[in-house]
Amino acid sequence: MRILVIGGSGLIGAQVADVLRERGHSPTATARTAGPGVDHTLDLGTASAADLAALVDGHDGVVYAARTDEQRPLRKPIYPVFRRDLVEPVVRLFTAAREQGLTRGVVLGSYYTYFERLHPQWRLAEHHTYVRCRVEQAREARAAAGPDLPVAVIELPFVFGRSGDRLPNWAPPLDRWVRSRAPLLAPTGGTAVVSARSVGDMTVDALEQRSGADLPAADANLSWRDMIARVAEAAGRPRKVRRLPAAVVHTALRIGGGLQTLSGKESGVNPSYLGGLMLADQYVEPTTGRSLDAAIRETFAR
């Protein structure tokens, strides 16, 4: 297969390209800016229909692995910005892919859409613009693709791993914290986690099988305390992780949300509604059971 990888310069896109090559397929990596391993530079936000038709032409499938920063505070209203970044490029891309006869596609999404289905009482899409746009992204990508171009959505939790100098965007601040002299604190609750390699394998599996399913990704489910302890050990600063009281978490996030409101800003994940989510078990079942040791070590190399 010839597969177009949008966001091919990022951690996940690079892993997908590597797995494609290993299995005898031919990836074409596209990114906004030139760099090692990038075959084409194109900004999907400004690309014309003709640009996209030329880009997808001759490929069998397409992977959308670009991302946006859901935590970045922006001036209100933020919904048009998130929709422009997350939804509209995907609709244009899969419209072009359908018109050019591509037969398979994958969108790298978020495990928040998994929890939106599993726990509707959490009202994630209502409270968080990022989640709302991820739900719209999946639905509208499939509508644009049509029945002959199945689109799988890989729902990603925290991803560990490294591709060259490319790391998860959340890793550097956590790395600085665990290497500092500051105490390590964690609330109750936890999260699903996965390695970038596992995501690459899942993505290529979905392409080969022409899957159109929602595919939550998880190698393991870790409490926040366990996750931080394993990161600290990998960084060469192992020490005890103390419990952070739930009341402190709720209060700090509510204050953060209030300050954002006063400044006329908001972020894709609203701090005012984040406390309950952080303290919940954001776990995915089933997990692959694959070891994360190597992925954690390479993310936080000493």
Rank of each mutant, 00 (worst) to 15 (best):
R123E: 13
T129K: 11
T103E: 03
C133Y: 02
C133S: 00
F115Y: 15
G164R: 10
P147D: 01
A97V: 08
L167M: 10
E99L: 11
F115T: 06
T113L: 05
Q100D: 05
R132K: 13
E155D: 00
V151Y: 08
V107D: 01
A144Y: 15
E116Q: 15
T103M: 02
A143M: 10
G146Q: 09
G146F: 11
S110L: 07
D165Q: 11
Q137P: 14
P150C: 02
L108W: 14
Q137S: 08
R83Q: 07
I154T: 08
P157S: 08
R139Y: 09
E88F: 11
A141Q: 01
F82W: 03
P157D: 04
G109A: 02
G101L: 04
Y111I: 06
L102R: 07
I78K: 00
R92S: 09
R84H: 14
R139T: 10
Y130Q: 01
G105Y: 00
V90I: 09
F115L: 13
E126H: 14
G146P: 15
D148T: 13
L118I: 09
A143P: 15
R142V: 00
A143K: 15
L167G: 00
L102E: 03
Q121Y: 13
L86M: 15
R142I: 00
V153R: 10
R98K: 14
P80K: 06
Q137K: 10
V87W: 12
A96E: 03
F82A: 02
T113D: 01
T113S: 06
A138E: 14
P157M: 02
S163R: 15
F115Q: 09
F160W: 04
C133N: 08
P157Q: 05
L108T: 09
I154E: 06
L149P: 07
V153D: 07
D165S: 13
P150F: 03
G164W: 10
G164V: 05
A138H: 14
A143I: 14
L167H: 09
R104A: 11
A145M: 09
G105K: 00
Q100T: 14
T95N: 06
E99V: 07
V159K: 01
Y79C: 07
F160A: 02
Y79D: 14
R123L: 11
G105F: 02
I154K: 05
F94W: 14
V81I: 10
L156G: 04
A141L: 05
P89R: 13
P150W: 01
R117C: 04
D85Q: 14
